[in-house]
């Protein structure tokens, strides 16, 4: 029976997990009174659904529709003047959602904040390019890698993959290797589809033996002339032992005896 692999997540998985194993969690600390982070959460008010500190950075969960306002407040009132990173995490298989995060930096306080929001599969997100120009490339990359549409982006186009690429590579449904379109992309593009047979599929094994290659390989029991075309299958040649047509030295040593 062929092994079942779920189609919604084709990434590598642990081959064995103990039934009773429960993953520990990275500790989440509450935002303490009188700290810088407490002021940030207070400035945003009810827009923050959940706020905690994880590994020294404030994480705030917000509503996806409010991302522009929240980040504007963070930039203008709380001094978060740099957007270091912006990307997404694919949770489509489990929850049917993408998780988007914005990593912001306050230069004066040397503090970092991560704004997290979730959107459904076909929803779009508002662009923050008017606030942070660094999001221009970051949002384009997110669109390229996940297919998440960004509203009001100045130039939303594939950035890393070629324009005629099919699929969004960082989705969990996209395999690391073996995608049909991806594996033939360069052959189709340069030589055309009709050259697929000539070039052949991707072969990473330098020690691979092609049984129909009569120039470099030979098969024992199927001797064929050098360079002969055996693509239809080679003709079997019965193995002949020297005993059948030559002098059998083992059985009868008469001739030898005569010579002596």
């Amino acid at each position: 029976m062929r092994k079942y692999t779920p189609k919604d997540n084709v990434q590598a998985k642990s081959y064995y997990t103990d039934r009773f194993w429960v993953a520990p969690r990275v500790p989440k600390e509450a935002v303490e009174e009188g700290t810088h982070f407490e002021k940030v959460v207070a400035a945003l008010g009810a827009q923050v659904k959940e706020a905690y500190i994880q590994v020294g950075q404030l994480v705030m969960h917000i509503e996806a529709t409010e991302n522009f306002q929240v980040i504007k407040i963070l930039k203008e009132q709380c001094g978060y003047t740099q957007c270091s990173e912006q990307s997404a995490v694919d949770y489509l298989a489990k929850e049917g959602e993408f998780e988007l995060f914005y990593q912001l930096l306050n230069i004066n306080e040397a503090k970092r904040v991560r704004v997290v929001c979730r959107i459904k599969k076909d929803e779009a997100i508002e662009s923050i390019v008017p606030l942070f120009k660094s999001a221009n490339f970051a949002e384009r990359e997110m669109f390229d890698m996940f297919g998440i549409k960004v509203n009001n982006h100045p130039f939303l186009k594939r950035i890393i993959m070629p324009d005629d690429w099919e699929g969004h590579p960082l989705l969990k449904t996209y395999p690391l290797q073996g995608d049909e379109f991806a594996s033939w992309y360069e052959v189709d593009k340069i030589f055309g589809k009709e050259y697929r047979n000539i070039i052949g599929p991707e072969n990473r094994d330098p020690a691979r033996i092609d049984r129909y290659d009569t120039k470099r390989f030979s098969r024992i029991g199927y001797e064929v002339p050098f360079g002969a075309d055996i693509s239809g299958g080679e003709t079997e040649q019965p193995i002949e032992y020297s005993e059948t047509f030559m002098v059998n030295y083992n059985k009868s040593s008469k001739q030898l005896d005569e010579r002596k």
């Binding site: 993959m161 590579p169 395999p175 290797q177 360069e186 991707e202 072969n203 990473r204």
Partner: peptide
């Protein structure tokens, strides 16, 4: 360049002798 090396991924040509 020889075989794709450690980058056995969707985005890498698996050996430039295909080109």
């Amino acid at each position: 360049a020889n075989t794709g090396g450690m980058f056995n991924t969707y985005a890498t040509v698996q050996g430039v002798d295909r080109i």
